[in-house]
């Protein structure tokens, strides 16, 4: 590997951007493809697939022959507003799935380390807590407080960033009112369509832990399948397509 490639690769990793090293084993030829350049790469499709799965591997029969792709993808993170019951169930599940978890809630009675062992807890309002977190593409953002004073400014921050998932707790009615408020702040329908609500996969979740599973299922789908697939396509439809 050329030192230049290694330097650029380490710089991309430091900046939490995905990058792939493409190596032709037979010729020793090697190049770095940064996330920003994937769309115009001759191996676009196969590189995208590997970035999405986060897995390195051989790719046969590409326009550039048999190549090896070393995939470097930042560790995903989850930022939650609301140190609530669902968050208590969600934090350990998310950690098990490999996410760094940060909980933000200005209510000091909720946001305690005792209620959330092993995760970062910030007892501040979102406008103070969120900007320093560097919410980026490999961040999932979820709003769980039910309180517009806390969730709205947090969603505004998330919408201004490139996070791969945004979800907000609340019924269709609650969410409808939320959309009205956010539209009033200048967001377009396309912006607001990024928010998953009602939050989580439709699995009939009842308990906080089940809702946490539904949310983590939906986040996993968005991480691994990308944004284009409708998350709530009925199972029968999905099966029809598959057969």
């Amino acid at each position: 590997m050329k030192l230049d490639i290694l330097k650029s690769l380490n710089a991309e990793r430091d900046a939490r951007r995905a990058a792939v090293v493409v190596t032709n084993e037979a010729t020793g030829e090697q190049r770095l493809v940064k996330a920003a350049d994937v769309a115009r790469d001759p191996l676009k499709d196969v590189i995208e697939k590997h970035i999405r799965s986060g897995k390195s591997g051989m790719a046969e029969d590409t326009p550039q022959g048999k190549v090896f792709l070393t995939v470097h993808v930042p560790a995903p993170r989850i930022v939650v507003t609301g140190a609530v019951h669902i968050s208590q169930a969600l934090a350990p599940i998310a950690r098990l799935l490999g996410y760094d978890v940060t909980i933000v809630d200005p209510r000091t009675a909720f946001a305690t380390q005792e209620r959330f062992p092993d995760v970062k807890v910030i007892a501040e309002w979102p406008d103070v807590a969120l900007p320093p977190l560097g919410v980026d593409h490999y961040t999932a953002f979820i709003a769980l407080t039910h309180d517009p004073k806390i969730d709205d400014p947090a969603l505004v921050h998330a919408l201004s960033r490139d996070c791969f998932y945004i979800g907000a707790l609340g019924s269709r009615k609650t969410h409808g009112r939320r959309l009205e408020r956010l539209k009033g702040q200048g967001f377009s329908d396309a912006d607001l369509a990024r928010i998953h609500a009602p939050i989580g996969l439709p699995i009939g979740a009842v308990s906080p832990a089940e809702i946490a599973v539904a949310i983590m299922g939906e986040i996993t789908a968005r991480l691994r399948q990308g944004p284009q697939k409708a998350p709530d396509a009925p199972l029968e439809k999905t099966l029809e397509k598959a057969s």
Binding site: L3, K7, E25, S56, F68
Partner: peptide, 27 residues
């Protein structure tokens, strides 16, 4: 990167394929 910048000779080994129950993943 650091070892190379310090002037050492450096090699990088990467697992490119595995079959069966290989203990470390590709990459």
């Amino acid at each position: 990167e650091d070892w190379r910048k310090a002037g050492k000779g450096v090699a990088l080994a990467t697992v490119v394929e595995t079959w069966g129950s290989a203990p470390r993943p590709v990459g």
